[in-house]
Design a protein around this nucleic acid. Sequence first.
DNA 1: TGAAAATGAATGATCGTTCATTTACTTTTC
DNA 2: GAAAAGTAAATGAACGATCATTCATTTTCA
Lengths: 217, 217
Amino acid sequence: MHADEDIMPMAEREPSPRKGSRTAARVRASALKLFARHGYAAVSMRQIASDVGVQPSALYNHFPTKQDILKDLMLSHMRDLLDAWPPFADEAGQSADPLDVFVRFHIRYHLQRREEVFISYMELRNLEPESFAEVEAERRRYESILKAILEDGQKSGAYRIADTGVAARAIIAMLTGIPNWYRENGPLSADKIEEIYLEMVRGSVAATPLTASIESD
Amino acid sequence: MHADEDIMPMAEREPSPRKGSRTAARVRASALKLFARHGYAAVSMRQIASDVGVQPSALYNHFPTKQDILKDLMLSHMRDLLDAWPPFADEAGQSADPLDVFVRFHIRYHLQRREEVFISYMELRNLEPESFAEVEAERRRYESILKAILEDGQKSGAYRIADTGVAARAIIAMLTGIPNWYRENGPLSADKIEEIYLEMVRGSVAATPLTASIESD
DNA sequence: TGAAAATGAATGATCGTTCATTTACTTTTC
DNA sequence: GAAAAGTAAATGAACGATCATTCATTTTCA
């Protein structure tokens, strides 16, 4: 839509491209951090203002309400996520298997944008109905990417899946849980995590459900 | 594992077993519903009192603070969950496979106690550090049940798992996501859901990662 | 009769938001 | 290029509403 500090303003009053302090972007950054840490309802406009280094009333030069800040953060996150797909060939591994590509992409993106991801799940219920519907629509669009991959593999006989919609949700839930426990400085590299989950995901949809030896006929 | 209305007080002032209105239990029920729907931080003591049908000050005859209500709900949920394991032979299917039993148990329990489950995940950050540590310890105990099952299967050669701790978290994340989308009156029966997820979980840890045809020797 | 439970009123604190005013900066004019 | 004009951004004070909690008093009930 236009460039603000770096990217992505949305609902606030459109600032002409000044060269100044880019307050709107700093409001977004502070709100993102605070909402992720304490939750939308537990964060006050005064806290955000204080973190930005400005008086509370100044926030209203950039966002009409607190709700609009949340809306901005969540919608721009969903758009960024969908814009980032598909990854460039040098990202997310160079496998030819679309499921591999998706799994690696999802894990990397979700580990890179922890706060955005966290907010976009946790604060759904604090969105006004219209914004909720928008975010939900984007989420379904994302889900349908994986669903299409699973359907293709199903048709080709590579996968055996009872319900591709359910499977897509199951896989995404599994992958999205990673940032809840994974720590950069932990014993496992991000690459190793990708491999472990990739293997589990492949197994969960593989055309040999649990009867590995019965498959012989 | 327990009846909702009567037993299970915890942090509030212990009421002698009067036969009266059991207000404490009604406070728990209202708070559970409201916290699940709007979030702890967005629910006021006045709302809870109004839902119970009592004046706000009356709540303090049963719980010293709002925080204690949350603590009570979350800790008693975790204890109930752990107490409910292992299921009786006539619950959660009668499979001899411990993984089957766990998966069915987890799905059923989480579909039966949606609000408790939801709160216990969403409101973790609103707990005081000490209570958080307690809940977290219980969560790890639960996780270790599955981890032990995976380790056994690993040793016996039934499963092939790179990291049983990671696999346990992955499986639990996958299963715990079900209540987010599953609806009783939807197209899928709870039993069908169990079967679908069971097959996916089995596949994700099966000793035939993705090389289905190499298993022939 | 005694204790638990509920009431009604009040506490000070904090909430999101508004607004008149001042400050900072860009654009226009000379 | 400097001064003037114009606009966006920030301030400081204030609004009414609502917050969790307290407490003296009354009611309920064993």
